[in-house]
Design a protein around this nucleic acid. Structure first.
Lengths: 200, 200
DNA sequence: GCGTTAAGGGAACTGTGGTGCCGATAAGAG
DNA sequence: CTCTTATCGGCACCACAGTTCCCTTAACGC
């Protein structure tokens, strides 16, 4: 059982890195444009101007490619808000989520990545990791609020942040309802009310 | 522009109906077992003991087949709870959702159908319709509660019901967190607190 | 630099998912 | 019951996604 290193792991620099970058770029564009079911590795190779064999060897399946894209996305982080009040911080978070999900490219990309996570176990792990990172980044807002006495000390920071996003994703995925600023503000207010009541 | 009726629409009875039933049954089984990406129309034909040509002619794509399954599912409705208190009704709803999503067959099936809705426009419409129906069925709990004075009259029944499910689906799809009875009770309590505070 | 070999890329091959064709069967109108 | 024709189903066909083979290029350890 000699551990066979996956292709690209031994000499990850130079050309290998350039290939990965070009492929992930093409994958993001294609996912945003055609969705997960339109992610064909042959197309990606042509679009990234890379050998078809290379794409099949390094990624193998659309799911694995989506998973790698998610790993890449999890590394670039956005700074959270620091308004000095939870109400405003949560509202900013909700509006950011809505802005992302309604953006023509980002919204379609996120849908496609969720689809990927539902079709591929590896992509699912990468997606969960991605959201864990994003939630962690914003949970400081809640920790600070507890410190300021704005929220009960029993409140779970990650659950509060998750509670803000949840209804927005539910609208996106399940009901298909419109995502606008009013929806964002409602989501933030609901999460805040639940947190204040000690339900989170 | 003579409207060409889709195959199966002119003589929907007898054999045609039996074929549809067998195909939808096979589609449900396959979606639950292999997910949306494993939904191959050729396999379905073999499993349902039906001509391959027939499946391709009537449904054409995995997405359209999933959409038809969703239409079928939207027709069979489950009765809502009537405990006499919103808190209990919402808790029952949350527990039902968790029970469904953690059931080995149902949980996988729902994931697969959501994946289908993210890959196919028609399946997306069918899924949104499905949830609209399910939410409508339970919104009576909230309407009744408003009548009893348990909730402010401004509360939107469908939004309250959606708020119960949202964190559970968020856990299922985005974070991958465990779905247990505690999570259900928390979701119900949070929705209730938000509704009482007038945030919904 | 140099040499080793990991990684890339071109081209030919193949299994199979999806289609077209056409005769067989039975739904539904009268 | 009879007739019309919608729908089913078997078979042959084909385009192409995914693989294999092997040569070329360039990482990176020394």
């Amino acid at each position: 059982m000699a551990a066979v290193p996956p292709p690209g792991a031994v000499r990850p620099g130079g050309r290998t890195a350039r290939v990965r970058e070009a492929v992930l770029q093409a994958a993001g564009d294609t996912l945003a444009e055609k969705g997960f079911s339109g992610l064909d590795l042959g197309d990606i190779a042509r679009l990234a101007d890379v050998g078809k064999t290379t794409v099949y060897r390094r990624w193998g399946t659309p799911g694995a490619l989506a998973a790698d894209l998610l790993k890449d996305m999890a590394e670039t982080s956005l700074p959270r808000a620091r308004n000095g009040s939870v109400a405003e911080d949560l509202r900013d978070n909700a509006r950011l989520v809505v802005k992302t999900l309604t953006d023509p490219r980002q919204g379609r990309l996120f849908k496609a990545l969720i689809a990927a996570s539902l079709c591929d176990e590896e992509a699912a792990r990468a997606l969960h990791r991605f959201y864990a990172v994003r939630i962690e980044e914003w949970s400081g807002c809640v920790t600070d609020a507890i410190g300021r006495g704005e929220l009960p000390s029993g409140a779970d920071p990650r659950r509060v942040i998750a509670a803000v996003s949840a209804p927005l994703y539910y609208a996106l995925l399940n009901t298909g309802e419109a995502l606008d600023e009013a929806a964002a503000d409602r989501a933030a207010a609901a999460a805040l009310a639940a947190a204040r009541a000690g339900a989170l």
